[in-house]
Design a binder for these strands. Sequence first.
DNA 1: GCTGTGACTTTTT
DNA 2: TAAAAAGCCACAG
Length: 109
Amino acid sequence: MPKADYFEDVYEVVRLIPVGRVSTYGAIAAYLGSKQGARMVGWAMNNCHARPDVPAHRVVNRQGVLTGKHFFGSPTAMQERLEAEGVLVKEDQVQQWDARFWDPSLELT
DNA sequence: GCTGTGACTTTTT
DNA sequence: TAAAAAGCCACAG
């Protein structure tokens, strides 16, 4: 197995997010080892164009707000996609966020 | 080789 | 309580 870049690590975790669930940059960053590396995660998402199977729409900020929705090409694509998976979004904010939150560090042990 | 930027998070004023 | 600033790592120019 090739050494996964920091990005691939992020992509893999994001890809493991179950449908109907959402995760946060900080959670993924923490799972990688640096909670403050959340910016890197977001930045990795910026390069998510290189990965076709990266559900970046399942990744939101700490508040459960779709911060990067604007990067999806359409400001509503992210929200609609989340709703299509069963995640209700209101005002760019994930509903039942506390229940929808998926922590890789907890689920992946 | 150095500087700037980035879809965040946390702490302090 | 709200708002602002700092911190962090990695990639691109």
